[in-house]
Each structure stands twice: as C-alpha cells, then as structure tokens.
Amino acid sequence: MFRQASRLLGRSSRPPRVRAMCTEVPANSNKDSAFVEAWKKVSPTMEPPHTPSTYMEPRPPTPSSLPSKLTVNFVLPYSSQLSGKEVDMVMVPATTGQMGVLPGHVPTIAELKPGVLSVHEGSDVTKYFVSSGFAFIHANSVADIVAVEAVPIDQIDASLVQKGLAEFTQKLSSATTDLEKAEAQIGVDVHSALNSTITG
C-alpha cells in the first residue's frame, strides 16, 4: 500500500507549471499543481493520474550566465529537421527583416516570410528556404522554428522559379479583384524570394 508513498511525498513540493507555447521559461516541473490539489479534494485516497504534460520533458531553466550555444528545434508538419541541435547562430527571415538569433537573445515571437533560414555552426552554414511560419525564441537560449514547407536551397529549380516569377508578374497586372491581386502578389513575393536565394 505504501509503495507509492515516496513518489507522492516528493511531488507536492514542486513549483507550478507554465503554459507550453509562451516565451516565458516554464519552471522545472510539468506537474499541474492546481490539478493535483483539485484531485486530492475529490479523491484523497487515489493518486493523481499522469497527464500528457507529465510525460513531456521540462524545458531547461534560464541559466544565469550566457550560454555559448543556441538550441534549435526546427519542425515541419511532416518531419523534424533539427531537434535540440546546439548551434552558434540562426538567421530567420522574419516579416520585419532578416533576424540573427544568438545565444541569450531576448524572448520573441516572430512571423516568418518566404526566405532563407540559415543555421550557422562554426564555419558550417546550412541553408533552408522556408515558405512561411513562426519562430519562438525563449529566454533560455532555445529557439523553436515552425514552418509549413522548408527545403534545402540546392533542391530549388532555377528555371521553374523564373517561369513562376514571369507568370505571377503577368497575373498581377491582369488581376481584377482584391483576392486575385493578393494571390498574384503572394506569387510574386515567393518567387522573388526564391530567385534572390538562388542567384545570391
């Protein structure tokens, strides 16, 4: 009967959980203390069940000194490109302009525009073209980058980019409704970004 007692005793002293998607760094535990309290009121004899957050690894706390490396998680809907990789810097194509993220960056959420995401690791630079997405930069030098589509830049076909650019420039001039204009403008933006990626 007392087999679980040590676990139960250890649990009550932990700090509360913080929401997962915010840029604040969650405390070092994933147990929802409010839930545990409520559970104890309803059924004092039964131990609280494990919730999905219990199984999630807690984020590392914000170190007091500046870390030398930035931890990057880069995910797409169908694959995980970088998972907890330690790099020197990432350059993200934010809507406000190219943004270099170094260790100890101020916590930010940035919307991404079509453009180049480059990951700098010493002298190695890995470049991806991202279509759109978001970058979440946390206070503990962890950056989460989420994109809908991202490809290594050597997989881009230059002739198709030129063709697309010409097609959408023409569509932009012939578009009549606001929606058509916006669609053509997106086409021009994406193809120009692709074009500048492969030419320079």
Binding site: S131, E149, V151, Q155, D178, A182, E183, Q185, I186, V190
Partner: peptide, 28 residues
C-alpha cells in the same frame, strides 16, 4: 495585404508552401 484581401493566415501560408513545392527539382 493578403489579410486585407480577406485571406486567412492558413490560406496564405498554404499558398506560399504550394508555390515553393512547385519550384523544386524533380525527385523532390
């Protein structure tokens, strides 16, 4: 501009992603 034209972020990002996919080299 895409928001002003009545598009949602999902529509916008899917259009962007599609255009990028269409510009890839063949096996990819």
């Amino acid at each position: 501009f895409w928001r002003a034209a009545g598009m949602t972020y999902i529509t916008y990002s899917n259009i962007c992603a599609n255009l990028v996919r269409n510009c890839l080299k063949e096996p990819y």
